[in-house]
Amino acid sequence: MLSPQKNLDTYFLEARRDLLEVAAMLDRYDRSVEKEGKKADDESRLNSLIEALALLSKKEHPESNRTEQLLVHFAKVS
């Protein structure tokens, strides 16, 4: 296993890229809403993503199981 510092140094840029893609996807949704003048009929996927981000924003996860929590969370959305 990599050291804590090596983990951050190795994976930070890829995680940064992935978060930027999420941000871009949310911006894309907002712009489409603005263009069409209405929200999606079913926003459950949007809400699921926002809830997932809230889960990730908690710094302390004693069981180091964020991934598992997200998979369980996303399973609620078809």
Partner: peptide, 13 residues
């Protein structure tokens, strides 16, 4: 770029 610059999807945005 695959990681460090703009991405294909963001470029279209």
């Amino acid at each position: 770029y695959p990681v460090t610059k703009c991405s294909p999807r963001r470029s279209v945005d």
